[in-house]
């Protein structure tokens, strides 16, 4: 019986996504064209990668507010090493990913060893990373990037934009980690009941550390994609990106209390936000109204989820 309810709430958001798509297809015929759907997917891929990263942290019972700043910082780092004729493209990419992982490690260690609330730690990291991005770039956009670096955000493989391929790859790998590996199972256990996880012999600190490194590492990937897409390392990029990512996770049915959630849910959440943004653009709704509508949908989705869960 409860399983049935579970399925209902799971498919509830999927149904919501389909309903939104159908409405938009009727309202504007252009919406349901291959061209537009590819645009939607490309648009959501950055938020999607961020949202999947923060899904790990939220299931483990934490939160990460530093995502947007990490996007900017890692974008600046990647761009600084991606000028034409400087290094092979792997160098800026690896440097950015490692910086992201390092930030995740600092977040995770401060939270587990320092026993400081994740909200505070990542709030601090939000301004630290933003400041570092501004320091490294002297507050100016880092431009003149190599074509091979710009391919990451702007190129196509078999007519499919690279960001979409990266997003799909991240979905697959993350789903496998959460569903089919020990560390994935431990993430659910730690978020569900930290004391019980500890008493079961799980090294809770390591599990949380892993979640934060995944989260910031994926934020770095998003930073690379964004910098490459706008062909600029922009220190002011990514402001409030963490909020869209967290919103997608929550719409996808992951509990902010930890212990429950899925990558599939997060992906649907990301798509709902993306489709609405795109649809409202197509319908020429002003961006002021778009914000209001998005907010209503976030709260509405969770409200529906609560009703179903009861």
């Amino acid at each position: 019986m409860n399983l049935a309810k579970n399925y209902l709430s799971k498919y509830g958001i999927l149904i919501a996504l389909l309903v939104i798509c159908i409405i938009l297809s009727i309202a504007t015929p252009y919406f349901f064209t291959a061209q537009n759907l590819i645009i939607v997917l490309r648009q959501v891929s950055i938020n999607g990668i961020l949202a999947i990263g923060v899904t790990f942290v939220i299931i483990a019972g934490g939160i990460d507010l530093s995502l947007g700043s990490v996007v900017a910082l890692t974008g600046v780092i990647a761009a600084s090493f991606a000028h034409p004729g400087m290094y092979p493209v792997i160098v800026p990419v690896m440097l950015a990913l490692l910086s992201g992982a390092l930030i995740g490690a600092i977040n995770g260690l401060t939270i587990t060893l320092g026993k400081v609330a994740p909200f505070i730690v990542t709030l601090g990291m939000m301004t630290i990373a933003r400041g570092l991005a501004l320091v490294l770039s002297n507050g100016r956009p880092v431009t003149n990037l190599s074509p091979s670096f710009n391919f990451i955000g702007g190129g196509d493989v078999l007519y499919i934009p690279v960001p979409i391929l990266l997003f799909v790859l991240v979905i697959l790998i993350s789903s496998v980690i959460l569903k089919y590996t020990r560390i994935g199972r431990y993430i659910y256990a730690v978020g569900g009941n930290e004391n019980a996880a500890k008493a079961s012999g799980i090294r809770v600190g390591r599990v949380k550390l892993f979640a934060y490194i995944m989260c910031s590492g994926l934020a770095a990937l998003a930073g690379i994609v964004l910098a490459s897409r706008i062909t600029t390392g922009q220190p002011n990029a990514g402001i409030a990106y963490e909020l869209d990512a967290i919103a997608a996770v929550v719409i996808g049915g992951t509990s902010l209390l930890g212990g429950r959630g899925s990558i599939a849910g997060t992906v649907i959440g990301v798509l709902i936000i993306g489709v609405i943004n795109n649809g409202l653009d197509l319908l020429n709704v002003s961006s002021y109204y778009q914000q209001i509508i998005k907010g209503i949908i976030i709260v509405g989705a969770v409200l529906l989820d609560r009703k179903n869960a009861r």
Binding site: R182, N193, A196, A199
Partner: peptide, 30 residues
Amino acid sequence: LTGLVLSSSVKHNITLAALKKTSPGIFLDL
């Protein structure tokens, strides 16, 4: 407080402390 992950299934709770035994590799033997 310390025994169960209430939000998880009976199965996942039972195997939680013994996952290394049931699945020694990287992937879980579901």
